[in-house]
Amino acid sequence: MREITLSQAVNEALAEEMRRDETVFIIGEDVAEAGTPFKVLSGLVEEFGTERVVDTPISEPGFMGLAVGAAMTGTRPVVDLMFGDFIYLIMDQLCNQAAKTHYMSGGKMSAPLVLRTNMGATRRSAAQHSQSLHALVAHIPGLKVAMPSSAYEAKGLMKTAIRDNNPVVIFEDKLMYNDKAPVPEEEFLIPFGEANIKRSGADITLIGTSSMVQVCEAAAEILAREGIDAEVIDPRTIVPLDEETLIASAKKTSRVIVVDEGHQNYGITGEIAGRINEKAFYHLDAPVLRLGAMDVPVPFSPALEDITVPTPESVAENARKLMSGEMIHAA
């Protein structure tokens, strides 16, 4: 199968959906000629014109509000938010308006829009351009949240998101735009709420989101050399969450580590760990462990920034502790 980058995968998904459905359009800062700072959208304005690839002034609340209104009146906007960190600026448009449109209109209206944005640290972008804020929106009923872990997921989930009749937020890891993965040339969609078991194992379950899936896979490699058979699961969408697959795995291995790049406090690691605790309690041989980003503003210093996020080594280290029972002894 051919391999393409995550950037190309997103670009393909958008182009395919824009060809298929003329109500789909892109709006945001530097999306047209610049093709975004990460060059994800290069070439789209040439094919679809500035009517459907709309550059806006620097006003996130402005273009987000515009997109919500456009979505409510018959189009399918794909809003480009240059950095996930700017999501604070559009919380009202997203959470108070788009997320509640279907509910508060009694189903007479909906806001079928996609918010494309990014996450991920270790790009030396400092505290205001390195956050992973998916937990903020995952908390809000009415929003779906997708977290692609490779080019394959980025394309399949984007196409599903555009066809969804309600708002979807997609967080792409900005460190992964140039990572290649096999992506079929023929059309495919990835349904929401279906986790992907990346690697099957018997001893411990590593649940990772976005780039943490690769981290978990690398940790599983390390552990395999030590005779620990780790299962790696990518939920792919955290709302809706494929609880069934996660819980079945927890019951099988009886030990779970949840790894995510958002801050650990009050993050989605806690949510997933909590659900497993509630529904697989009598199958657990160790506490469900959370591994998130350190609860500090992301440092600019490379030496400091690198230690704030989970790594294959830190995941493997914690897995060993769970296997040996050390974690329970500490409890």
Partner: peptide, 9 residues
């Protein structure tokens, strides 16, 4: 007695 939930079950 301290035991993991699974061990108890």
């Amino acid at each position: 007695i301290l035991a993991s939930p699974k061990a108890r079950r």
